[in-house]
Design a protein around this nucleic acid. Structure first.
Length: 669
RNA sequence: GCGCCCGUAGCUCAGAUGGAUAGAGCGACAGGCUUCGAACCUGUAGGCCGGGGGUUCGAUCCCCUCCGGGCGCACCA
């Protein structure tokens, strides 16, 4: 790990600048990584920044600073480059040895509790690739924050009273004319999330044939909210089965949660009623008495960077009034039914501990990893349930289409005088997933018509049943991985082969979801996602498997364990890693050490593509090293030991990096 | 119309707080398995970083403007 070294150098340079020039406000500068190791391991550009205020050449300033730096532990030398850079060269052998011995422990400061909410799929159909991006990002966010020592609680919001659930109830009760008993039987004997996937598309059709039928949906929705009737009982059954299907799908990907938050409980426990009082009292929400929203409780939407008066002065037009009326968002409809925004506001208030109320909790089940999963409840609840909510910081993983509503949440917090909480409510926004035309065709969907045909992608639509289901995709990937594993490892049992295939499939799909930056729309193409070569999850796994094999063989053939090698390094000549500025082994070790620096960048930018690219680059470096520098067959023992030590560190770091992305390393592949 | 996002090699994408020579994968072409596993490695070709202004010692990155594309702006969620 490298962050501690960077801080050490940074602080020393600040000290020297202060002493040398008497400046109190040293400009902010970073300790960065030069493009090649020949230019040093770390570099600082502060001399450029000081050139103007000091009225001196960068080169001269750099030389003065370099001369003023005292000896630093771990630093071999710090030199001023002719162009003004300050280049730092590290003490290579001690750098590697101390890391292998875990002497570089930088215990992260204890942090405030943080909630990550992700997945939140409508419980009315199977999960598709759009949901996959959300869950992969959310789960990785949780892993990365935990790596930084943050206390994390992962929540999955379940909209059990929404229109989408109502639609499935309508489909079963009204279109298919099923009795409650029959519905239970279907839920228990079919692949129910797939069944509902098809049914949902049928319901959409059914409405389109006769818009009058939408009144059936409204009545159903009303019955759901009312509760205590057959419709509500049926809906609860549907929701429970679909939620369990979603959890199973996510479990296959190594994605788990701490708490399921049910919207129904928000209503039953009067969370909304309570939040409504708070909102009314502060004036954040008020009753509109005129215009088309008369009778609705609305929230006024602040225009970002609005300049009301000047705008009106420049553009005096009769439409002004109509425009401003449109800038109001309905929170409670004129029929008295709260919108989902209202319920979500209550949920966010609760998460931040601002509601003054709490859910009851019940144990929902055990997850793949053995961890318990809890659920909110409005019943008595389990007295031994752990505490939930009351976080200092929350991340809501939701696609960019909901930006508008997320902005509304933080605006509500501000209006209520919770500026700090608003600041700590982060909308982790990302672009949607579309389907390539080729993949849509492959799935048997009719070719898009009109305007849609010219679009570069086909929009995923649960309503139309248009999308790639996660389980189908996983099955496809496992099938392919399985045949690849079997081809290379004839001696493996079916179980072992299946285990590896599943790990490979998960790696492929998770890496695929993380390698794009979140602002980029992913046009999902099956063929592309099935690739196990080049920049892919399996490539990364392959590198670690190879590294692991070296140690297996060292143990088998020479009874040499990693600990033996590390233990003997102190007395072993280190030329293998010190010779030559552009030493390949050192380049590998140094890059491996950068994981903590990379993770810091990731947290700052919330951009996992940085982590993905880093891990890939490290695997590439390792693979190149692997080809050029033998270990088992190296005759000189000093070389052999230093190479093995370097590989030991790289595999440990790469394994950590993969774990952050939810990727496991198979024993064979 | 307003707001947000995107535009970098043939295709798909990286280029953290402005820094040293703009990179990778795929595809194309040419090589490398009796060697620690070829899901790999080595090499070649391929770029007005959408256009134009500006800020600066320095701009793919920041500001303005234009062009092209996506997504939002419901008494749906």
């Amino acid at each position: 790990m490298i962050l501690a070294v960077q801080r050490l150098i940074h602080d020393e340079i600040v000290r020297v600048i202060t002493r040398l020039y008497g400046v109190t406000d040293v400009p902010v500068f970073a300790v960065e990584v030069p493009p090649t190791r020949a230019l040093g391991d770390l570099a600082v550009t502060v001399a450029f920044q000081l050139a103007r205020p000091l009225r001196n050449a960068p080169k001269a300033i750099a030389q003065e600073i370099a001369a003023g730096i005292g000896p630093l532990p771990g630093v071999a030398r710090l030199v001023a480059a002719p162009n003004g850079y300050l280049n730092v060269y590290l003490e290579r052998p001690t750098f590697l040895v101390s890391r292998l011995r875990h002497e570089i422990a930088a215990p992260p400061a204890p942090s405030d509790k943080t909630i990550v909410e992700h997945t939140a799929i409508n419980p009315n159909k199977a999960a598709h690739v759009g949901h996959l991006r959300n869950a992969a990002l959310g789960d990785t966010l949780a892993r990365v924050l935990r790596f930084c020592g943050v206390e994390i609680e992962v929540q999955n919001y379940i909209d059990d009273l929404g229109v989408q659930v109502a639609d499935i109830v309508v489909g079963l009760q009204e279109i298919e004319k099923r009795s409650p008993g029959q519905i239970r039987e279907i839920a228990d004997t079919t692949r129910f999330d797939y069944y509902c996937w098809d049914l949902y598309a049928k319901v959409t059709d059914w409405y389109e044939h006769d818009r009058e039928r939408l009144s059936v949906r409204a009545a159903t929705l009303h019955a759901l909210e009312e509760g205590g009737n057959d419709t509500a009982t049926t809906a609860a059954l549907i929701v429970d089965r679909i939620v369990r299907a979603h959890l199973k799908t996510m479990g296959r990907l190594g994605i788990g949660y701490d708490l399921l938050t049910y919207e129904g409980d928000i209503l039953r426990l009067q969370f909304w009623a309570h939040a409504f009082e708070i909102l009314k009292a502060s004036g954040a929400v008020f009753l509109q008495t005129e215009g088309r929203l008369a009778g609705c409780w609305v929230m006024r939407i602040d225009e970002p960077g609005a300049k009301e008066e000047s705008a009106e002065a420049e553009a005096p037009s009769g439409e002004g009034a109509g425009e401003s009326e449109a800038r109001e968002k309905v929170i409670v409809r004129s029929n008295g039914v709260v919108t989902y925004i209202g319920k979500d506001l209550a949920n966010q208030f609760w998460k931040l501990g601002l509601l003054g109320r709490d859910f009851k909790y019940r144990l929902f089940g055990r997850q793949e990893n053995g961890q318990p999963l809890w659920s909110t409840t409005s019943d008595a609840g389990d007295p031994d349930a752990p505490p939930f909510g009351h976080a200092k910081r929350i991340y809501n993983v939701i696609d960019s289409r909901q930006m508008y509503l997320q902005a509304l949440l933080s605006q509500a917090l501000r209006t209520l005088g919770h500026a700090e909480e608003a600041e700590n409510s982060v909308h982790f926004s990302y672009e949607m997933v579309g389907l390539s035309h080729a993949t849509a065709r492959e799935l048997g969907y009719p070719a898009p018509e009109g305007e849609d045909a010219t679009k570069p992608f086909v929009e995923v639509s649960g309503r139309k049943g248009l999308g790639v289901k996660i389980d189908d995709l996983l099955d496809l990937l496992i099938q392919k991985a399985s045949s690849e594993v079997a081809k290379r490892n004839a001696e493996l049992s079916a179980d072992e082969c299946g285990r590896a295939a599943s790990q490979i499939a998960v790696a492929a799909i998770r890496y695929f979801m993380l390698k794009y930056s979140r602002g980029k729309l992913i046009v999902f193409d099956i063929e592309e996602a099935l690739s196990f070569e080049g920049e892919s999850g399996p490539y990364l796994q392959y590198a670690v498997v190879r590294a692991n094999n070296i140690f297996h063989k060292l143990q088998e053939r020479e009874a040499l364990a990693e600990a033996d090698i590390i233990g003997a390094l102190a007395g072993t000549p280190a030329n293998e890693i010190t010779d030559d500025e552009e030493n390949v082994l050192w380049g590998l070790v140094f890059e491996a050490a950068r994981l903590d620096d990379i993770v810091e960048q990731v947290v700052r930018s919330l951009e996992f593509s940085v982590l993905a690219k880093y891990a890939f680059g490290l695997a590439q470096l390792f693979n190149a090293f692997y080809h050029r520098y033998p270990i088992l067959n190296e005759e000189r023992s000093d070389r052999k030991r230093w190479r093995a030590a370097g590989v030991a560190y790289v595999r440990a770091q790469l394994t950590r990096a993969l774990d952050l992305m939810g990727i496991e390393v198979p024993s064979r592949m």
